[in-house]
């Protein structure tokens, strides 16, 4: 149901976003010229674009590797997080006992955990995925648990009236009501997933054949290839946006029934 105003609004917002981007690039170019900044410190947008074209193959490979790790980590976090949330929704004791540790998972800095994980899991793709899962887990567990527990009182009375057991209540009332929270948590985690994967790659990438965006970044940083570094940075932002957009797309298509109120 896209009305004329919606279309106009969409067109307007796209226009505004592009205007800001264009102005930003212009200012960037002007600043580099005006202060005569060296290329190693801050290249111009056009130099970055040329670096993108030049390193296209590596960047695509990087996007694919990091993208795969992010998607795998996010998917695993959705599965593990939802399962944990379901357990938490069923037992108050379990929730009280374990929820603080889920919060702990969130508060421990991932850059401190990553080296430890490398000791245990090696310089592998698997390590990158594990780091991503850790980063993504909290928003999902937190959101889905909240969703499963914040049930309308009348609706839960309705289920009680018909003596619906735990399982039926979970399946027919709690889980459908929590889909919106799951989507919200997954969107938050989608942005985090790429960050998690790249941070892991900073550690994993050194001296191996692994070739994610994070690996490229550390490599180019060492070579003072600032233009390529910035190109990789834009690729990672693009990846995060794509992941976020995909989650949104799934939520308004396949999950539309549960998300729309």
């Amino acid at each position: 149901m896209v009305t004329l105003t919606d279309k106009k609004d969409a067109a307007l917002s796209v226009m505004l976003v592009f205007t800001v981007a264009l102005l930003g690039l212009l200012m960037w170019e002007v600043i580099v010229w005006h202060f005569e900044l060296p290329k190693a410190l801050l290249p111009t947008p056009r130099q970055c674009f040329r670096a993108t074209v030049e390193h296209m193959d590596e960047l695509i490979q990087g996007i694919l590797s990091t993208g795969l790790a992010s998607v795998a980590g996010l998917a695993a976090a959705v599965a593990i997080g939802s399962l944990l949330a379901i357990l938490f929704s069923q037992s108050r004791k379990l929730r009280l006992a374990l929820f603080p540790y889920v919060i702990l998972l969130q508060t421990v800095p991932i850059v401190a955990v990553a080296p430890l994980l490398i000791i245990w899991s090696g310089y592998t793709f698997r390590t990158v995925v594990i780091v991503t899962v850790i980063v993504c887990l909290f928003p999902i567990v937190n959101g889905v648990t909240t969703g499963l527990l914040s049930i309308d009182r009348d609706a839960s009375d309705l289920f009680r009236l018909y003596r619906a057991g735990r399982l039926k209540t979970l399946r027919s009332l709690q889980m459908p009501s929590a889909v919106g929270h799951l989507v919200l948590g997954t969107k938050t985690s989608a942005a985090l997933a790429v960050i998690g994967a790249i941070v892991a790659e900073f550690f994993v990438g050194n001296g191996t054949s692994y070739d994610g965006l994070g690996t490229l970044m550390t490599g180019w940083q060492a070579l003072a290839k600032t233009d390529a570094l910035i190109a990789a940075l834009f690729c990672s932002a693009l990846l995060g946006l794509t992941l976020f957009g995909s989650v949104h797309l799934i939520s308004v298509t396949a999950l539309r029934r549960w998300v729309q109120r």
Binding site: D152, D154, A155, D157, L158, P176, V179
Partner: peptide
């Protein structure tokens, strides 16, 4: 066995 039923002030329909 559903021999008692309740109508709430709000319709309380499941939106999905």
């Amino acid at each position: 066995q559903g021999q008692i039923a309740f109508v709430f002030q709000q319709a309380t329909l499941l939106p999905w």
